[in-house]
Design a binder for these strands. Structure first.
Lengths: 145, 145
DNA sequence: CCTCAGTTTTGAATGAATCAAAATAAGCGC
DNA sequence: GCGCTTATTTTGATTCATTCAAAACTGAGG
């Protein structure tokens, strides 16, 4: 009888109109523990609790969660897609250009105007996305490798 | 005797310390004609002039040009890598979330401060990248398909 | 014009992600 | 609680963009 009991993850799934399955519940838990994990990392984490889970199931879960807005997908250049729980929304990401590590960055200061482009080539603008690039603490500390 | 004559592309390559080969010259020309082209599109354009060129050669050319800063590589989520000639640097990109088309956008207004994050999770910041998302004129005109 | 390192060709391999059919199970109504 | 229906997962194969590697070639300095 898998997960007859209630849980925050179960409620979250149900309120989004999704069935509360074990892989989905464990995927949400994995993302709590591993922010910015990619599909493989989520799979590894879920597998340790549900050994019969397939990687394809994880892809399916992640895309269902992304479609319903429970999870956000980020795709930095040169990195596989990464996922994070949607927690409010005022933050961007900083990516280590050496090792690919990702950090959260609070919304830039003084910027409501910043993200308004001056021209849009005829496009209808819906969102602006900011990605910062730099070095994570570890890579900055080991510049000579 | 391929390209003994001088040309803007040849000079550009030589001044970057690269050998002026036909595939490189034609790749630069292809990017003048096709801004934001991906490797396949560059290959198609170059092939029409140099039928013996291989796709792998194009990948090699693009990575040499990118490494020397002659060309900039952009990688919007869900799109293969795209390339553009480095022309000054005050612009960002707007991507059509429906068809993937890309447009240039002049630097956002009033923004020197905008791209300064308030916290950086311990990362050393080097650059900030802005990507706008929206609908291109064509996709905005055909919302019912 | 010759030589050699930088390039390209040719052919194969990788990694991330998607597709599809069959098997399974969540949660509705009874 | 019990089936039924449909959403979800499993299983297995496939696509696409990109990279790797060895051999053949060629630009350009001497």
């Amino acid at each position: 009888m898998p997960h007859t009991e209630t849980s925050p993850e179960r409620d979250l799934l149900r309120s989004a109109g999704l069935r509360a399955t074990d892989p989905r519940i464990e995927t949400l838990r994995a993302l709590e523990t591993h922010p910015h994990a990619d599909a493989q990392e989520v799979f590894d984490a879920v597998s340790s609790v549900l050994p019969d889970t397939s990687l394809q199931a994880i892809y399916g879960v992640l895309s269902a969660l992304t479609d319903t807005g429970l999870v956000r997908r980020i795709e930095p250049a040169g990195s596989p897609a990464r996922y994070e729980l949607r927690v409010g929304d005022n933050h961007h990401h900083i990516v280590c250009s050496k090792c690919g590590a990702i950090g959260d960055v609070d919304c830039a200061v003084g910027h409501a105007p910043c993200l308004t482009p001056s021209t849009t080539s005829g496009f209808t603008l819906t969102t602006a996305e900011v990605t910062y690039w730099g070095l994570c603490p570890d890579c900055a500390a080991a510049p000579l490798t």
